[in-house]
């Protein structure tokens, strides 16, 4: 039983990070209908940027938590600007082009990010300091939960609640939802779709930056090519939830985190990926648009 609880705790932690990253994929897909393959590498970039800023500023603060928050905010700003530039340079000229051209442009952008990280920080792994968060652990039964896990869970939870309110209860959110359904109609109703897309990229990058720093704080080791693996997992989470659907990405992320962690705990970690993808394929066979995705009927 203790394995189960332990794996659930770990799964929820990694699942909420997946969910944060998956939201970036799903929001871009929702409005622009293409897979932003560069998002994973942007997440990796944020892990590096965040670490660099943290090591620079940590000595100026007595409390490492404040140093983390400061670095988190600066990282969010930097990554949002990069996300904006990414959209402006690599995607905006391709709005009217065949959709796969934008996909290849995104793959190219991912390659740029990955190699830029390697050129700046080198090919070897970097490590988040062990004492970045006080190493506190709580036991209940035989299971343990660490302070960092609690922080990740709580922060992710509040960020997702915030996003949900933003999208569902505000004017901007209504514009985002309108642009996702029909860009042209939204434009006719006076919505500045270009501005909405910029907001979406900024939001997606913000969530990705948080996700990237959480990955660093939780696993400690970060590498220049880590974005691809986490990116593809988060993307799968978005698909499982129903791509384009914001609650779907949250649900998909948590679900995938739990599933991965339970497979690794009970069956075998060398086969974990295979099980994940078998699950994904089964879900898509029986529910072709993901768990919360809605079927779009073709107009004849």
């Amino acid at each position: 039983m203790y394995i189960f609880i332990q794996q659930v705790i770990n799964g929820l932690t990694i699942g909420s990070i997946f969910a944060l990253i998956a939201l970036g994929y799903t929001m871009v897909y929702g409005t622009m209908k293409f897979i932003n393959f560069a998002h994973g590498d942007l997440v990796a970039l944020s892990a590096f940027v965040g670490l660099t800023i943290y090591t620079t500023v940590v000595s100026s603060f007595s409390n490492s938590i404040i140093a983390i928050l400061i670095s988190l905010i600066i990282t969010i700003v930097i990554i949002s600007i990069i996300g904006y530039l990414l959209e402006r340079i690599a995607y905006r000229p391709l709005r009217k082009a065949p959709r796969l051209s934008a996909v290849v442009s995104a793959l190219g952008a991912g390659m740029v990010f990955q190699n830029a990280i390697m050129l700046i920080w080198g090919p070897n792994p970097h490590y988040y300091p062990a004492d970045i968060i006080p190493n506190k652990i709580w036991h209940f039964g035989d299971s343990v939960i660490s302070l960092i896990q609690i922080l990740i869970l709580l922060l992710s939870f509040f960020i997702m609640i915030g996003l949900y309110i933003l999208v569902n209860k505000t004017r901007t959110g209504r514009a985002i939802r309108a642009a996702a359904i029909n860009q042209d109609a939204a434009r006719l109703m006076g919505i500045n779709v270009d501005a909405i897309i910029v907001i979406i990229f900024a939001l997606g990058s913000t969530l990705g930056a948080v996700g990237g720093m959480f990955l660093g704080m939780f696993y400690r080791g970060i590498t220049f090519n880590m974005g691809w693996n986490y990116g593809i997992s988060a993307f799968v989470a978005a698909i499982i939830g129903g791509i384009g659907n914001i609650p779907g990405a949250m649900l998909g992320g948590i679900f995938l985190g739990l599933f991965n962690s339970l497979i690794a705990g009970y069956i075998s970690s060398t086969w974990a990926d295979a099980f994940t993808y078998i699950l994904l394929i089964l879900i898509l066979i029986f529910k072709p648009t993901g768990i919360l995705g809605e079927r779009v009927a073709e107009k004849v």
Binding site: A97, P98, S105, G108, V112, F113, M118, L119
Partner: peptide
């Protein structure tokens, strides 16, 4: 060290200039 960075830029440029 630089070739794949340039390569990624080339991929983006190709798609922008020749979307098909």
């Amino acid at each position: 060290t630089y070739r794949y960075l340039v390569f990624g830029v080339m991929m983006i440029l190709t798609m922008i200039l020749r979307p098909r």
